[in-house]
């Protein structure tokens, strides 16, 4: 038991330092898609995608199509459905109880980015 816990203890710090080391060397990752070349949608267009059949959301000025992701989200579909076609930054930042989504979730939404909100 003593050997096993000690091995895990060493492996833990090795893994954490590896992740920190890779991060330090891999600064390119920080340049995220900023949506410059993506189409701009008006609120009228966005608001039409307000159901589970087609669910668009606006988070920090960017438009995401989460239709395919909803079945994979940890909560029942109704939780995400209520934000379809709406400004959803607050929902993303607070989950409704003051707790932000994880960095992994924030990274994951980039896969669903479809455009930006048109300035009116």
């Amino acid at each position: 038991m003593k050997k096993l816990t000690y091995t895990l203890f060493v492996a833990f710090w090795a893994s954490v330092l590896t992740i920190a080391g890779l991060h330090a060397m891999d600064k390119k990752d920080a340049e995220k898609a900023n949506g410059d070349e993506l189409p701009a949608y008006t609120w009228d267009e966005i608001e039409q995608h307000d159901s589970l059949d087609s669910c668009w959301k606006v988070i920090e000025g960017k438009v995401y199509d989460f239709t395919d992701y909803i079945p994979d989200h940890p909560t029942p579909p109704s939780v995400m459905e209520q934000w379809c076609g709406k400004e959803s930054t607050e929902a993303m930042r607070t989950k409704g109880y003051g707790r932000d989504h994880s960095p992994a979730a924030w990274a994951m939404i980039d896969d669903y980015l479809v455009g930006t909100v048109a300035e009116e």
């Binding site: 893994s15 954490v16 992740i19 920190a20 890779l22 991060h23 990752d29 920080a30 992994a104 990274a107």
Partner: peptide
């Protein structure tokens, strides 16, 4: 935490790092 960070690494080492720190 290591498993959660490795899972986040699917979105890049930056995400894994920010999951831990």
């Amino acid at each position: 935490p290591v498993l959660l960070a490795l899972s986040a690494a699917a979105h890049g080492t930056d995400t894994a790092f920010r999951t831990l720190f």
